[in-house]
């Protein structure tokens, strides 16, 4: 090593060791560095470039400047439709999932026996995902033989043509997603049990009723958890694919044409790779903006007890 040939001065030995340690550190970091370059930043840059080109994957890409983006925003009704579908879904799904998940967690947060069994049962649907679940729900929504209409029939509600109706197809997918609310129940339950009991005790002493305690203690203390679930929920919704691909193929009449499905079709059916890259970048920017906005907005109402270090 170079350092060893130099005149020994205090710290030189330390710096040699430090350098060795640094090299070792980088070597051990290679799995991430290589993956980051090859599977994240490289493709990210490539798709940014492709977004400015016209490319069918066979001939070489033609640079067309901002044309993809201008036609996306000005003359592509399907782009707007898929955005509308995706945000409509989020607008229905996120509040409902918060309401149902939080309510169930509140009810389960009692000192009664058997809570674990219920927790298991609620959580079960959210561990399964993908094609098999989509296939299962595709049959659940069947108008004539489906179990959902049977269930509604027990309450005297006439059968709904879930998947064939432009109006009901999207709510159907919301219902299917709400079935998987168990993951957020567990997260809320853990959050609820992390609230110091003293807070409730002193509120009880002050004579605060159930609603007041919920409103002034539980909800403020839970706001970081709720907030985190909200951010993840938005990002997840923007990337919904398998359900729509298997169950509705985006139909009827594009009523469930999710944004990710639109990217997939544009890239792999229409082979408009440049255009699809532009769409993907629009998605990326939307996610960045939303995360930023929610974080800004979150500062106004999210209450972090104590310090931030523990959350690092």
């Amino acid at each position: 090593m170079a350092a060893s040939s130099k005149v020994m001065r205090p710290g030189a030995r330390g710096s040699r060791l430090a350098r060795r340690e640094a090299v070792e550190g980088y070597v051990w970091l290679l799995p991430w560095i290589v993956g980051f370059l090859a599977f994240t930043i490289g493709p990210l840059g490539a798709s940014l470039y492709l977004g400015f080109t016209d490319w069918n994957g066979v001939e070489s890409p033609q640079w067309i400047g901002l044309e993809n983006y201008t036609s996306l925003f000005t003359s592509d009704p399907l782009f707007w439709q898929s955005l509308k579908v995706t945000f409509l879904f989020a607008a229905m799904y996120l509040p409902l999932s918060l309401l149902i998940g939080f309510t169930l967690a509140l009810i389960m947060n009692q000192s009664i026996a058997g809570i674990r069994i219920f927790r298991t049962l609620y959580y079960l649907p959210s561990v399964v995902s993908g094609v098999a679940v989509a296939v299962l729900w595709w049959f659940v929504f069947n108008r004539d033989y489906g179990v959902l209409n049977w269930l509604l029939g027990l309450f005297g509600i006439p059968p709904v043509d879930w998947l064939q109706s432009e109006f009901w197809a999207l709510p159907a997918l919301v219902i299917m997603e709400l079935w998987r609310v168990g993951g957020s129940i567990i997260i809320y339950l853990a959050g609820l049990q992390g609230i110091p009991t003293e807070l409730y005790d002193s509120a009880l002493v002050d004579g605060a009723g159930w609603w007041r305690r919920l409103w002034y203690i539980t909800i403020p203390m839970m706001s970081p958890t709720i907030f985190f679930n909200l951010v993840m929920g938005i990002i997840g919704t923007l990337q919904i694919f398998t359900q729509a691909y298997i169950i509705t193929q985006g139909g009827p009449n594009y009523a469930t044409y999710f944004y990710a499905l639109n990217i997939y079709n544009t890239a792999f059916s229409a082979l408009r790779l440049g255009y699809a890259s532009a769409m993907a970048w629009v998605l990326f920017v939307i996610i960045l903006l939303l995360t930023l906005v929610v974080f800004r907005w979150g500062k106004a109402w999210v209450y972090y007890a104590g310090e931030k270090e523990t959350r690092a």
Partner: peptide
């Protein structure tokens, strides 16, 4: 391990959580 730029790289790594798979899909 201690090496220069560790905190910066760690932040870079955390921020890549936000990159949706759809953006890297076509070039991959």
């Amino acid at each position: 391990m201690r090496f220069p730029g560790k905190n910066f790289l760690f932040l870079v790594m955390l921020s890549t959580v936000m990159v949706p798979g759809w953006v890297t899909l076509i070039p991959s």
